[in-house]
């Protein structure tokens, strides 16, 4: 029995438009709300506002890799190619937010630390996470056969996911320039509200992005199968 083909699954469930608009409008609201309602930090002034984009971007990076991990395991287990496409979609969106996390962090680090970059465990492991995303995506473009592509990239996705808890714990396991995670007690309530709202907004946006990307990936795969069938001749397809 050969692995399932998209024709068996039918067209993908489209991402609802209201979710996209809702996520985008909610994101605009939470950004404006957070910036407008929070006073300048006693030490760093309005640079503190960076937490409303840097921290949520980092959070959805971790969440996206979580999707890659679960979908990769599911693909190896069930050989359902939809899981492979979901993992690939999550990796694309995750790499975007991981890059964003790095850049936003550098913009904050220059005026705060005095340097754009330093090779401490948190910054280095986050860069490694970005490279794993990039490696995962480039591996996919190198492997021709869809089924083998799925298996190889699932292996990379599962192994690469080990780095997520390493990034998270790096600030506690090793001495770093980067501060450890803030907790609600160390955060004035006017900052905490804006941060939590933006965490929710970034999560919704990420769900929307992954869903849309997955939808496109399903059509791409269907076209791939159709092209393969045409190349082999209609008798075999």
């Amino acid at each position: 029995m050969s692995p399932a083909t998209p024709s068996q699954f039918g067209p993908p469930k489209p991402a609802p438009v209201w979710l996209g608009w809702g996520a985008f409008l909610f994101f605009l609201f939470t950004q404006v709300y957070a910036v407008a309602t929070s006073p300048a930090d006693a030490m760093m002034g309005h640079l503190q506002k960076m937490m409303y984009v840097h921290v949520p971007a980092a959070w959805v990076t971790f969440a996206a890799f979580g999707v890659v991990l679960v979908a990769s395991l599911h693909f190896l287990w069930k050989e359902d190619e939809r899981a492979d496409l979901l993992a690939a979609s999550a990796a694309e969106v995750g790499s975007l937010f991981c890059g964003l996390t790095l850049v936003l962090g550098m913009l904050w680090g220059r005026p705060t630390w005095g340097v754009w970059w330093s090779w401490d465990a948190r910054l280095t492991s986050t860069l490694v996470l970005f490279l794993i995303f990039v490696g995962y995506l480039s591996l996919r473009s190198f492997v021709e056969d869809p089924h083998r592509r799925g298996q190889w990239s699932a292996a990379v996705g599962i192994l690469g996911a080990i780095n997520v808890p390493i990034v998270w714990m790096s600030v506690r396991w090793w001495r770093t320039l980067h501060q450890i995670q803030s907790n609600p007690r160390g955060l004035s309530p006017e900052y905490l509200r804006g941060l939590l709202l933006n965490l929710a907004a970034f999560t919704l946006l990420t769900i929307w992005f992954i869903w849309r990307r997955y939808e496109a990936a399903r059509y791409e795969r269907a076209a791939e199968h159709a092209a393969q069938a045409a190349a082999l001749g209609d008798n075999n397809g």
């Binding site: 006073p39 300048a40 930090d41 006693a42 705060t112 630390w113 005095g114 803030s182 004035s188 006017e190």
Partner: peptide, 20 residues
């Protein structure tokens, strides 16, 4: 090279300071 370490605490300034 001199780098300043930031703590994980963020506090609104007390009255009298001029954050702006």
């Amino acid at each position: 090279s001199l780098m300043v370490k930031h703590s994980n605490e963020y506090k609104a300034p007390t009255k009298g300071e001029r954050p702006s």
